[in-house]
Amino acid sequence: KTVHVDGVEYRFNNPEEADKFVKRLVKEKNGNVEVRGDTYHVE
Rank of each mutant, 00 (worst) to 15 (best):
K1I: 15
K1T: 15
K1D: 02
T2C: 15
T2N: 04
T2P: 03
V3L: 03
H4M: 14
H4N: 11
H4F: 15
V5R: 00
V5L: 05
V5M: 02
V5K: 00
D6Q: 02
D6N: 14
D6F: 05
G7L: 01
G7I: 00
G7T: 01
G7P: 01
V8N: 04
V8E: 04
E9A: 03
E9D: 06
E9I: 09
E9Q: 04
E9V: 10
E9L: 06
Y10R: 04
Y10W: 02
Y10K: 05
R11D: 06
R11G: 02
R11F: 14
F12S: 03
F12V: 01
F12M: 00
F12W: 01
N13I: 08
N14L: 05
N14A: 02
N14S: 14
N14D: 13
P15T: 12
P15I: 11
P15N: 06
P15V: 09
P15Q: 13
E16F: 04
E16D: 10
E16G: 05
E16K: 03
E16Q: 05
E16H: 02
E16W: 06
E17Q: 02
E17S: 01
E17W: 01
E17A: 03
E17M: 01
A18S: 01
A18L: 07
A18I: 02
A18P: 01
D19L: 13
D19I: 11
D19K: 05
D19F: 05
D19P: 04
D19C: 15
D19S: 01
D19A: 03
D19G: 01
K20A: 15
K20Q: 14
K20R: 12
K20W: 08
K20N: 14
K20G: 09
F21H: 04
F21M: 03
F21E: 04
F21W: 02
F21L: 06
F21V: 04
F21R: 01
V22N: 04
V22Q: 03
V22T: 07
V22R: 09
V22E: 10
K23N: 11
K23A: 14
K23Y: 00
K23P: 07
K23W: 00
R24A: 15
R24V: 08
R24G: 14
R24I: 13
R24Y: 11
R24W: 12
L25G: 01
L25F: 03
L25C: 12
L25H: 04
L25S: 04
V26Q: 09
E28G: 06
E28L: 09
K29T: 12
K29H: 15
K29V: 11
K29I: 13
K29R: 13
K29L: 15
N30W: 08
N30Q: 08
G31M: 14
G31I: 12
G31R: 06
G31W: 12
G31F: 14
N32G: 06
N32S: 14
N32D: 06
N32F: 13
V33H: 02
V33S: 09
V33N: 05
V33P: 08
V33C: 14
V33T: 06
V33D: 05
E34F: 09
E34R: 08
V35S: 06
V35W: 11
V35D: 03
V35P: 07
R36P: 12
R36K: 10
R36S: 11
R36A: 08
G37E: 13
D38W: 00
D38M: 02
D38A: 02
D38I: 02
T39N: 10
T39Q: 11
T39P: 07
Y40C: 05
Y40V: 14
Y40E: 09
Y40T: 12
Y40A: 10
H41N: 09
V42R: 02
E43H: 09
E43M: 13
